[in-house]
Design a protein around this nucleic acid. Sequence first.
DNA 1: AAATTTCTGAAAAATTTTTTACATTTCGAT
DNA 2: ATCGAAATGTAAAAAATTTTTCAGAAATTT
Lengths: 290, 290
Amino acid sequence: MSATALTISDRIQQELDNLTRAERQLAHSILENYPASGLGPLSSLAKDAKVSVPTVARMVQKLGFKGYPEFQAELREELRAKVKNPIAKHDTWAEGAPSEHMLNRFTDAVIDNIKHTLGQIEPQAFDKACEMVADTDSHLYIVGGRITHTLAEYLYLHMQAIRPKITHIQSTSNTWPHYLLNVNKNDIFVIFDMRRYENNTLKLAEIAHAKGARLILFTDQWRSPVHQLAEISLSNRIVVPSAWDSAVTTLLLVETMISSVQNLNWGDIKERMEELEDMFDQTKLFRKFT
Amino acid sequence: MSATALTISDRIQQELDNLTRAERQLAHSILENYPASGLGPLSSLAKDAKVSVPTVARMVQKLGFKGYPEFQAELREELRAKVKNPIAKHDTWAEGAPSEHMLNRFTDAVIDNIKHTLGQIEPQAFDKACEMVADTDSHLYIVGGRITHTLAEYLYLHMQAIRPKITHIQSTSNTWPHYLLNVNKNDIFVIFDMRRYENNTLKLAEIAHAKGARLILFTDQWRSPVHQLAEISLSNRIVVPSAWDSAVTTLLLVETMISSVQNLNWGDIKERMEELEDMFDQTKLFRKFT
DNA sequence: AAATTTCTGAAAAATTTTTTACATTTCGAT
DNA sequence: ATCGAAATGTAAAAAATTTTTCAGAAATTT
């Protein structure tokens, strides 16, 4: 690399604060697939980033280059150096850190978990689960335990925008028996139970099952005992270099489920979402996105 | 890559015999530091290879391109694909499902998010954040918003086992001003703020900052306005094929942070964990893992 | 060795790309 | 709500790059 040891990518990130809205938009577009995007003509870059041509020219100058061609020349020089360098540490996730760094070790483990979990999942079962969750004829109960109630709540929060008739139950709370009073046959339960499996959750599942409810279970690879009652079980690999287990894979499945369910009853959702957004706007909880 | 699966480099080598003297000279120059050399202006390439400008134009046509710009475009496309691929590229994640299935599409996007996020993170900043969170001299506040309070709680639950003096604040609750009364200089705040950024969170951050607290921010790639107050900002890519954003990458970072912090003050933790386990066992919340 | 074909490069023409100038919009402060 | 400053985009000018044309050089064939 030339005089400065910093890559253009670094410099852009460093300057990110000093950039204006359109320029930041452009910056992200450059980083999106770096460095390829910056090596094309200025006008293509502008088009990709949906900013005007002069905006690109101005930002490039802001980064300290005399003009776009000079900017490109340095990008190419960077690329030359990178390809030339045999110690291309391309096998790490966080490039600035050695492979033994926790960031890299942990990410490796998580990717591995994802690979295994997705590899073993039955798409039909997953689709079936999504259909069940999407069905607004029955009430939807979402159940989590001591740790997993965070995942349950995450699912609950998004389902709120998608469909009515949902309840979030925390199995560790002593109020859950009340909720079960109203359970009808064919109501849907989404239950999270990871090791160490919770007694309360099992009991809750048993009662729900006895009442004729249909159970969907998110669990780990060793499976919570609830799985014997569940119509559909989704097992996740959760091992990471830590004293605790990872919930990343489970969250991935949860989010995928949210997205699928949303697609299943899109018509209704659009309205609901707009309504919801309006309400949040009115309470001024959020700032407008700039 | 276009119709042919061959790279330009392959094609050049294949054609090598059908090329004339000057063209061969040029070919070797291109391959010399591929692909950087081909991404500059035609005239530079000609100069480097010590051939004339039309020679380059002619050879590029011989390789089957309409003109030099088209040749460059494909080089860039190659580069794009190459950079995108290097780690963990599965054709399909859920093998029983077509690649258009939501499970595969969503996972692709998430892996991509992880790649980008980790690629742009500064390990030093991350380590610093972990140290700050591990420091038991100051009180640790964990703050989340409407959706992100689930992540905040996840962090909180694990930190409970690792260190004392922690508080989970939900910025959307109206009780948070009370908590801030007790904030001392150098207390640590871990704040979650993803788009759409929340006004309450910003206000809370401002007050905490004014009181001399040190802020660690988990945000998205566009960065919450809180980042101007934060000592350390960790930006996450969050785009997925859904109407909502993904929290998977953020959870990954949170878990990695938990694991790192645990390593930092391992001595203390062991005792705390055992104590905690005992307590949970006594309340019989959990069944023994069989 | 001459003739023919093919290859190569200089220079002009055509095209594209970059830069500059200026009008419009947006944003923040009063 | 109004003003002024900063930011952004449109469009034209300037600069560069690419393509074409054509003449001379090298190689090949007769």
